[in-house]
């Protein structure tokens, strides 16, 4: 059976969606069948990295949650109709995106009425079977809400992203506690946006000691990444960049779960 990998951060702006998209892309480049689900229903964004906007989206997770379509109808084959040069490298690979709606009325509707969490769970399980996935990546909402806790509870692996920032350090402790409470079998920490003048080896040691969990990688703060502005997949556009090299090492570790 396929593995579920959730990517989470306690606070927003950590680079969670970028990390999820690039990790899934690396899995697809290695010949794996992978999909990404955007469970950040209140503030979706990962579709942007794949060149999708409201006009190009077909069915969305919101419609599935209302019972208006099957989960496999929401799965968009990455690179098929949109995306930059990096995304286009995935055209003949097996990578799907299950986007949440970016339509304002759709977002307000789901926030207003809530939804059946059981249907979301069936959808995630259905994706693994219907698309015969090796990996299902879940891009979660920052902080802890119902869909995030569900994602953590069903995961084979959880990646928690944090920045070298005191607010992130405290919030990460909360997520680590929850993950342990839910018996997540593989827990990884990733430090993102670290200043290059820091001693990465020392930082790795300190973070691992603080949380008692392995650091899968420390990604440098990158001006080139900021410049790309989520317009494409960084690790495919700049494969020789230190960020991309570390990302591939993280992928190696995570895909071994």
């Amino acid at each position: 059976m396929g593995k579920i990998i959730s990517v989470h951060s306690f606070r927003g702006g950590t680079g969670k969606s970028n990390m999820t998209a690039n990790l899934a892309a690396q899995a697809a480049l290695r010949g794996k069948r992978a999909a990404i689900v955007d469970t950040d229903i209140q503030s979706p964004g990962i579709h942007v990295l794949f060149g999708l906007d409201e006009t190009r989206m077909g069915h969305t997770l919101n419609e599935f949650l209302r019972g208006e379509c099957a989960i496999q109808d929401v799965a968009y084959p990455v690179g098929s109709t949109a995306g930059g040069e990096g995304v286009q490298q995935l055209r003949d690979k097996f990578l799907w995106l299950i986007p949440s709606s970016i339509n304002g009325r759709e977002i307000s509707r789901v926030v207003k009425t809530g939804y059946d969490v059981g249907i979301l769970n069936k959808g995630l399980s259905g994706l693994l079977k219907e698309l015969k996935l090796d990996y299902l990546f879940i891009d979660t909402h920052p902080g802890l809400n119902e869909e995030t806790l569900l994602s953590i509870a069903i995961s084979d692996g959880l990646i928690i992203i944090l920045r070298p920032d005191q607010q992130d350090f405290q919030g990460t402790a909360v997520t680590v506690d929850i993950a342990r409470g839910l018996d997540v079998p593989n827990l990884f920490l990733v430090v993102n946006k670290a200043l290059t003048r820091y001693d990465f080896a020392e930082m790795k040691q300190t973070v691992e000691k603080t949380y008692g969990a392995p650091v899968a990688g420390i990604l440098p703060l990158s001006e080139e990444m900021a410049d790309l502005g989520s317009a494409d997949l960084f690790s495919l556009c700049f494969p020789d960049h230190p960020w991309s090299k570390t990302l591939r090492e993280i992928a190696q570790m995570v895909l071994a779960v």
């Binding site: 069936k122 802890l144 569900l150 509870a153 069903i154 018996d183």
Partner: peptide, 23 residues
């Protein structure tokens, strides 16, 4: 809720995690 599952005794939590995956 998934939050409740974290509060369950280990044996019950194990079953609920398996059931969540298999539905």
């Amino acid at each position: 809720s998934a939050g409740d599952i974290a509060e369950l005794p280990p044996a019950l939590r194990k079953i609920m995690r398996m059931m969540l995956r298999e539905v």
